[in-house]
């Protein structure tokens, strides 16, 4: 029972990380139909930026965190502006290939600057953050994950439901020509979706870095798990991305705990294949509203 609960806690918190990172991926896909193959590298960029600011420049943690948020947000804008925007109007496949190239370029840059070793953040999470629930103890990193995960999910929930920019973003995903006809700045929406994708990917990259250490190859590989997550949840569903993330997180930890650790790494991709065969739009993909 104790073991089960421990796995449950670990699974959900890992799942939150996947959800958060998938949120960024889905956002880009929803607004511009682009599959971002550089997604894994976005995690790594966030994690390394935080490393540089917090551990090397030794700035206070809260400030490093804030600077990483701002920094990745701006990076998202810059990347969209310089690389994606010139391809607006071109075939989708060209844009997707571009993201593949971007990913390789980012990875190369990170390797060049930080090398291929495993880095570590200085310890900063207070021990007091951990929770002792009697039967299970939730380590502080998991508590931090829950807090960050829930905070961001609520934040984006509110952003999309109530803010004007959030509603404009959804309108572009829904009917692009209608959005254009009303003067929605569609290119700005694309840029914003990249900026948000950079931020949420950075968040999950940082927390994964706290758990596993920071390594370019590992982080970009974990980033690839966004594919099983979004295929499971439905490429165009934000709610699906969140649930998909949690399901994959749980599956991984339970497979690792009860079956075998080597199976753990491949279980998400087994799920991916099964889902593609039985339910290609994912569990929560948008069902077209039919006119009656």
């Amino acid at each position: 029972m104790e073991f089960f609960l421990q796995l449950l806690v670990n699974g959900i918190s890992l799942g939150f990380l996947y959800s958060l990172s998938a949120l960024g991926f889905v956002m880009i896909f929803k607004s511009s139909s682009v599959l971002n193959l550089a997604h894994g590298e976005l995690l790594a960029i966030g994690a390394f930026l935080f490393l540089a600011i917090s551990t090397w420049a030794q700035l206070p943690i809260w400030l490093s965190f804030a600077l990483t948020l701002v920094g990745t947000f701006l990076l998202g804008f810059i990347v969209e502006r310089f690389f994606l925007r010139p391809l607006i109007g071109e075939d989708l496949i060209q844009v997707i290939m571009l993201t593949l190239g971007l990913g390789i370029m980012f990875k190369g840059l990170l390797l060049f600057v930080f090398g291929g070793d495993i880095h570590e953040y200085r310890t900063f999470l207070p021990e007091g953050l951990s929770l002792d629930l009697g039967i299970v103890r939730i380590p502080s990193v998991n508590v931090a994950t829950f807090i960050i995960g829930i905070l961001f999910l609520i934040l984006f929930g509110f952003f999309f439901k109530y803010s004007s920019q959030g509603i404009y973003m959804r309108s572009v995903a829904d009917n692009q020509s209608a959005a254009l006809s009303l003067g929605v700045h569609v290119r700005r929406v694309f840029a914003l979706s990249w900026a948000i994708a950079f931020i949420v990917a950075a968040m999950s990259g940082i927390v994964l870095g706290i758990i596993n250490g920071i390594n370019v190859h590992e982080l970009s590989a974990i980033g690839l798990k966004v594919f099983p997550v979004v295929i499971l949840g439905g490429l165009d569903s934000i709610g699906g991305a969140i649930l998909g993330g949690i399901i994959i997180g749980l599956l991984e930890t339970f497979t690792g705990g009860y079956i075998s650790t080597s199976l753990r790494e491949i279980i998400p991709y087994i799920v991916l294949i099964i889902i593609l065969m039985v339910k290609p739009y994912g569990l929560f993909g948008l069902v077209e509203i039919e006119r009656v």
Binding site: S164, I167, Y168, R170, S171, D174, N175, A178, A179, L182, G183, V184, H185, L286, I289
Partner: peptide
């Protein structure tokens, strides 16, 4: 906008 409510649709008009 199919997946937006009526009022959200109207809000897009303020873009």
């Amino acid at each position: 906008f199919k997946y937006l409510t009526v009022e959200e649709n109207l809000r897009v008009g303020t873009a």
